[in-house]
């Protein structure tokens, strides 16, 4: 070893390339570890969860104190909450981004708004849960309900959607705006007729990633919307719902018989992962397709 080191130092080019090889090895290994982590987790969930999946599992409610039966109410609840989050986050996010990219001039107000958006993006999900509890559930008296949960999730994904929409709006060439304005078309009509339609695909794909997050979050809905178990399906937006992420948590930590319900737990995890990752995957595929077929 001592000799080897000496020979490397004597031959400096070789030593330099040896360091490079070593470094590249470490870098490749890191990438590999990350890929394996994802692969391993997915593989494990699929192998263990696939046995539990059946038509009944997806379409029937749980029975026998949630030790048997399906997870239909939780799937439905997650769908409701996600749609609610989109209904709140998407319009607000797009409107914010329109102001920031189309109207705002550089200055303190804009800087403040942008810092605010970054800070909101960094608020921990459990704090969002507390906010939802303190504000929507208690202060506005919405109770633990689809409405409270959707509002909480909607504001949680707001920064993601603003970011996606800003990026998509900025990607619309400035020349389109100039062309429209030079024809004597007003600013708002230019935004509405030219900028928005061209940015919309980008806004939507970017937002999908936020939507996937809304579907998978647990802490924000724990105190605002999610029920341990509901006998009936929700009838209005003021009802509590079951939700997939919370159902997993409940079964895995507080169920009546944690070991015996493992297959159901794995099955529920698989369903949640399938839902969230297919949402993400669709976004990723559409985006790469759009990049390849860019029209301008």
């Amino acid at each position: 070893m001592e000799d080897m080191m000496k020979s490397f130092k004597n031959n400096s080019m070789k030593w330099r390339y040896f360091k490079q090889t070593l470094f590249f090895g470490a870098v490749r290994l890191s990438a590999l570890i990350i890929a394996l982590a994802l692969g391993g987790i997915l593989f494990y969930i699929i192998v263990n969860g696939i046995g539990a999946i059946s038509w009944d599992f997806i379409t029937k409610p749980p029975t026998d104190s949630m030790t048997k039966g399906g997870i239909m109410p939780a799937i439905l609840g997650t769908i409701y909450l996600t749609i609610g989050a989109i209904a709140i986050g998407l319009p607000l996010g797009i409107a914010s981004a329109i102001y920031l990219t189309e109207y705002a001039k550089q200055g303190r107000v804009i800087r403040l708004i942008k810092v605010g958006i970054n800070c909101l993006a960094g608020v921990p999900s459990v704090v969002f849960g507390l906010f939802g509890l303190g504000f929507f559930v208690i202060f506005l008296k919405f109770g633990s309900s689809i409405l409270s949960g959707s509002l909480t999730l909607g504001f949680l994904i707001l920064p993601t959607i603003i970011g996606a929409a800003e990026e998509a709006l900025k990607a619309v060439p400035q020349t389109f705006r100039e062309a429209s304005l030079s024809l004597g078309v007003s600013k708002w009509q230019t935004i509405y007729r030219i900028v928005l339609p061209n940015a919309l695909p980008g806004i939507l794909t970017g937002s999908i990633l936020g939507i996937g997050r809304a579907a998978g979050e647990t802490a924000p809905i724990m105190f605002t919307a999610a029920a341990y178990f509901t006998a009936k399906l929700p009838g209005s937006i003021f009802d509590e719902v079951m939700a997939l992420p919370y159902h997993i948590y409940v079964l895995a930590t507080a169920g009546t018989n944690i070991e015996a319900t493992r297959p159901i737990q794995y099955g529920t995890v698989l369903v949640l992962v399938a839902v969230v990752l297919s949402i993400d995957l669709i976004a990723i595929i559409i985006r790469s397709y759009m990049r390849k077929n860019k029209r301008w």
């Binding site: 100039e178 062309a179 429209s180 030079s182 024809l183 004597g184 078309v185 030219i194």
Partner: peptide
């Protein structure tokens, strides 16, 4: 906006909208 209706402009790089030929003309 009123001024721009009377004073048209053609830019350095052609900048048609990603619309049909017909709709490009009819847009304004």
């Amino acid at each position: 906006v009123e001024i721009r209706r009377k004073v048209g402009m053609v830019f350095q790089k052609p900048n048609p909208f990603p619309k049909t030929i017909y709709n490009n003309i009819a847009y304004g």
